[in-house]
Amino acid sequence: MKIIRSKDDLRTLRRSWIFKGERVAVVPTMGALHAGHLSLVEVARQHADRVIVTIFVNPKQFNNPDDLDRYPRTEEQDAKKLAPYAVDALYVPTPDQIYPDGFATNVHVSGLTEDLEGAHRPGHFDGVATVVAKLFLQTRADVACFGEKDYQQMLLVRRLSEDLDIETEVLGCPTIREEDGLAMSSRNVRLSAQDRAIAPALKAELDRAATAIRRGADKRVVLNSAKAQIERAGFDTVEYLELRDAADLSPVTALDRPARLLVAATLGGVRLIDNIPV
């Protein structure tokens, strides 16, 4: 696995693959890799001859500076975790390779970004869209793998690639969970032992709510009850718990098309998100 830090070196390597007619996949990450990330690498390998994993802690997608400071940086451990997966290149760009002096462009995707995560994290999705556009153009990947845990982000990236005619197909990959149901996330390491024991209640309530909605129960009653149960389990607060259209995240009043139940809640000061299909 080559470790690359400059976009020029990455392009040189990429050109050699293009010359051979090889298909390339990219897995964009911010590091602190866990089994969820590694599952994306496995999917990428199934869809391409060459795989690039990127690690870049993107300051533009953190609306809270303290959250940015606390985000784990574990490049050496991450490289060791990737070693068994036949990754061809680990791209770890320095900040100037993504945002050079004078950088003045911001990418905004309308519609998908104003609600849910967008409402609670102002500017977050502009940061995601901007850095992903840069990474897609720098890697020139044929396919990119994104986890469905960040469902709104996955839809945004897919829309971005389609709207800007970037020839990178965006694949959504299933959420990888701990044995007790908690969605894997780099943030989970910040949970205390007590909070870690409480955290699985989030997925459990999603499952109960989805079952009730499928059986025809009143959506508002079900969601209000689920919010109360999550907070009763020990969560600080539930920021949102919504049933939305699976394709465009528009509000759903009747379960007459594929939908997604999405939640964000804080536990011990750690913000957790999850979602399941309904």
Rank of each mutant, 00 (worst) to 15 (best):
180 D>Q: 14
47 H>Q: 10
122 P>D: 12
269 G>V: 07
212 A>C: 09
194 Q>M: 14
233 A>C: 15
109 V>T: 01
272 L>K: 13
230 I>K: 06
172 G>Q: 04
100 P>K: 01
169 E>H: 09
88 D>C: 02
31 G>L: 15
187 R>Y: 09
177 R>S: 04
170 V>C: 03
149 K>L: 14
87 V>R: 01
13 L>I: 03
135 L>P: 00
60 K>F: 06
178 E>G: 15
202 L>Q: 04
270 V>C: 06
59 P>G: 03
141 A>T: 08
7 K>S: 02
216 G>M: 05
171 L>M: 13
70 R>H: 14
161 S>G: 10
102 G>V: 15
175 T>K: 10
112 L>H: 04
133 A>W: 04
131 V>C: 07
241 L>E: 14
110 S>N: 09
99 Y>P: 10
8 D>Y: 08
52 I>H: 00
202 L>N: 07
120 H>L: 12
23 R>W: 09
163 D>Y: 05
109 V>I: 08
59 P>E: 10
257 R>L: 00
184 M>A: 11
74 T>C: 01
257 R>A: 03
236 D>T: 10
50 R>Q: 15
124 H>I: 15
267 L>I: 15
203 K>S: 02
183 A>M: 09
133 A>F: 04
86 A>K: 09
73 R>F: 13
120 H>W: 01
206 L>Q: 06
176 I>R: 09
45 R>Y: 15
270 V>T: 13
278 V>E: 03
88 D>M: 02
263 V>S: 08
252 V>T: 07
147 G>C: 09
11 R>T: 03
7 K>M: 02
239 E>L: 10
125 F>V: 15
37 H>F: 05
261 L>Y: 00
159 R>E: 03
123 G>R: 14
251 P>H: 01
46 Q>D: 07
61 Q>T: 14
143 V>Y: 00
143 V>Q: 00
32 A>R: 02
19 F>S: 08
210 A>K: 08
36 G>Q: 08
121 R>E: 11
89 A>Q: 00
265 A>P: 12
256 D>V: 13
264 A>N: 13
140 R>Q: 12
71 Y>L: 11
16 S>N: 11
184 M>P: 03
245 D>I: 01
10 L>M: 00
64 N>R: 11
58 N>E: 06
228 A>S: 06
141 A>Q: 05
257 R>V: 04
47 H>M: 06
34 H>R: 14
90 L>D: 09
75 E>M: 13
84 P>G: 04
226 A>I: 03
122 P>W: 08
220 R>I: 02
203 K>W: 13
179 E>Q: 07
185 S>I: 07
60 K>T: 10
23 R>G: 11
86 A>H: 05
62 F>T: 07
28 P>D: 10
100 P>C: 11
114 E>Q: 15
9 D>T: 14
115 D>I: 07
126 D>N: 13
21 G>I: 03
220 R>L: 11
114 E>Y: 01
67 D>S: 11
252 V>A: 00
31 G>Y: 10
53 V>H: 02
260 R>K: 07
156 L>M: 11
62 F>R: 08
278 V>T: 12
43 V>C: 05
218 D>C: 14
65 P>W: 04
277 P>M: 06
23 R>K: 06
133 A>C: 14
204 A>M: 10
211 T>S: 05
242 E>M: 14
172 G>K: 07
57 V>H: 08
133 A>L: 04
159 R>M: 14
196 R>A: 11
193 A>P: 15
50 R>W: 12
196 R>W: 07
235 F>Q: 12
241 L>T: 13
211 T>R: 05
239 E>V: 14
107 V>Q: 07
